[in-house]
């Protein structure tokens, strides 16, 4: 299968190792991965901040970038950005009366999958250790990001895959379904409320005793990791793609917030 990678802006710029892990997983399964060079961002930050005109330009760029190459499916290591591509891009175009862009955006959205959606629903991966060779001998906990959970209805796909990684110990996160408080510019405009939510999330993570918290959205992990780091917690965050890509021969290091994103 030819799979187009939508890295997402935050992974591209801040967590390139997550995108490289995504490539590793897909290539290990024998698929061809391509990276449409024109891609930048899904525009979600603009949309959710009410800047629809700007968001539409960002969305149009995405549509164009993912129309410019031939592929079977597109994949992103993010529930939130995929939800934006699928739901918000057509909405932005329709509101501006651009039926043509709406139709094109819908077509691109229909071919776009969140990573575990692709792995489970399309590529029939149910056992990460066996089918991907995943090996990660650490105790982790897992935060299901809101948009993956509620907009894409990912259910237990992410958690189930993590649980099948070799050597891993996944401990349940109390109040896992509660938002971490990120919410894009919400964390700036309503920073205090966001912080109160983040503190509770960090406390719940700490209570599990796990060395790190995984999840499927780099933005939430950036937020949670930032809170854990400021609180001086021992635990850090790591995207699930890096755990799935980790093998006995090529292991991912369990990060700690004291080292930052270096790889």
């Amino acid at each position: 299968m030819r799979i187009a990678l939508f890295a997402t802006c935050i992974v591209d710029a801040m967590y390139p190792s997550t995108a490289r892990a995504t490539v590793k997983i897909l290539e290990r399964l024998g698929h061809e991965v391509l990276f449409p060079a024109g891609q930048a961002c899904c525009g979600q930050m603009h949309t959710n901040s009410g800047y629809f005109d700007a968001a539409r330009k960002v969305a149009a760029n995405h549509v164009e970038a993912f129309e410019s190459v031939e592929y079977d499916v597109a994949v992103a290591p993010s529930g939130s950005c995929v939800a934006s591509v699928k739901h918000q891009h057509p909405m932005l175009a329709e509101r501006a009366g651009d039926a043509g862009l709406a139709e094109r955006a819908t077509a691109v959205g229909a071919k776009t999958y969140e990573l575990t959606q692709l792995l489970v629903d399309v590529l029939d991966i149910t056992d990460a250790a066996e089918q991907l060779g995943s090996w990660f001998p650490h105790t982790i906990t897992y935060h299901p990001s809101c948009h993956g959970m509620r907009l894409l209805r990912l259910g237990d796909r992410q958690l189930d895959l993590l649980k099948t990684v070799g050597g891993i110990d996944v401990v349940e996160l109390p109040e896992a379904d509660q938002c971490c408080g990120f919410g894009g510019t919400f964390s700036m405009k309503n920073s205090q409320v966001s912080t109160a939510m983040l503190e509770d999330k960090a406390e719940n993570i700490r209570s599990t005793g796990a060395g790190l918290c995984s999840g499927g959205d780099a933005s939430c992990l950036l937020h949670i990791g930032g809170g854990l780091s400021r609180a001086g917690a021992a635990a850090g965050t790591l995207h699930l793609a890096e755990i799935l890509a980790s093998t006995l021969e090529d292991p991912a290091e369990a990060p700690s917030t004291t080292t930052g994103a270096t790889r």
Binding site: A13, P16, R20, S191, L198, E199, G226, S229, R230, A261
Partner: peptide
């Protein structure tokens, strides 16, 4: 407001 309660990790040496 963001950095009032959250650190930001050092960015990587190169983008993906």
């Amino acid at each position: 407001a963001w950095t009032s309660s959250r650190d930001i990790p050092a960015p990587p040496a190169q983008s993906f």
